[in-house]
Simulated assay, not measured.
Amino acid sequence: MNEAVLTVTDHGGWTELTLNRPDRLNSFNEEMHGALAAALDDAADESCRAVLLTGAGRGFCAGQDLSARANAEGPLDLGSTIEAFYNPLIRRIRGLNKPVICAVNGVAAGAGANIALACDIVLAARSAKFIQAFSKIGLVPDSGGTYFLPRLIGDARARALMLLAEPLAAETAAEWGLIWKVIDDAALMDEARALTARLATQPTQGLALTKAALNASGGNSLNDQLDLERDLQREAGRTPDYREGVKAFMEKRTPNFTGRRS
């Protein structure tokens, strides 16, 4: 793994991934895509029970690095970039069998904004801004933006943000329900790490199944979702952490969850 573009820190039970191209506002090139994909694949291991994603320097992520395309001749097939890199990234984050927390430490623009929104819990520095910057260069929002935004904040706000490409302040993003919480800049990483460490002590399989239920909810009828809840609850009830949780409840003590499947 290339530490030059992605820093991976093992905190013992959870992993911190830091996009590390601060001179380019952590915009993506193929090298960083590859490093992040590999790190997320590694994080699927049972020994990792939560993931924190953040950015180095003054911004979280400015989306795609456009410098390599500035002098390109003829039309580009941007769909191939989406298919090869961004779509798999969003699917990795949403499908990862544990919580993914995002600490947005500055601007999150274009694909960078939507990658943050793909995470399970988003904390943002008070100075952070979210920008659907695609219309400024004649593009369509990608990386799940047209899926996430209408569901999170409603159609009217999503349309305005995408068509106007105006920055959305972190405090407004929290008020609208786009993100979980705003934190003072100096305290962001301490709180994000504490939250991730806390989640890494919880019943990981139950959290993964909850995530699966939420991922399916948007496309399911009520009857389909009720059936899914039944099936996932059956699976959760067979985990060691369920048994430990009940035992700890009855004994009036703090449970010691292991996160194991069996």
Rank of each mutant, 00 (worst) to 15 (best):
V8M: 08
T9V: 15
L19V: 10
D23H: 11
N26Q: 04
E30R: 14
E31Q: 13
E31Y: 12
E31F: 03
L36V: 07
L36F: 03
A38Y: 08
A39Q: 10
A43F: 01
A43E: 00
A44F: 03
E46N: 08
S47G: 04
C48H: 05
C48I: 13
A50M: 01
A50L: 00
L53K: 00
R58C: 08
F60G: 01
G63N: 10
A70K: 13
N71I: 12
L76M: 13
D77K: 11
G79E: 14
E83D: 15
P88I: 05
L89F: 01
L89A: 01
I90L: 04
R94Y: 02
N97V: 05
P99Y: 01
V100W: 00
G106M: 06
G110K: 08
C119L: 06
I121Y: 12
I121H: 07
A125Y: 10
A125F: 10
I131T: 03
K136W: 10
I137P: 12
G138L: 10
G138S: 07
S143A: 15
G144W: 01
T146A: 08
F148H: 08
L149A: 07
L149K: 04
A158M: 07
R159I: 14
L161S: 03
A165L: 11
E166H: 12
E166F: 04
A169I: 01
T172I: 12
T172C: 08
T172P: 08
E175N: 12
L178S: 05
W180N: 15
D184Q: 03
A187F: 11
L188T: 04
D190A: 15
R193P: 00
L195G: 00
A197H: 10
L207P: 05
L209T: 11
K211D: 07
N215R: 13
N220H: 14
N223W: 13
L232E: 12
P240A: 01
D241M: 05
D241T: 08
R243A: 12
E244T: 10
G245T: 00
K247T: 06
M250T: 13
E251P: 02
E251K: 09
N256T: 13
T258F: 12
G259I: 02
R261W: 11
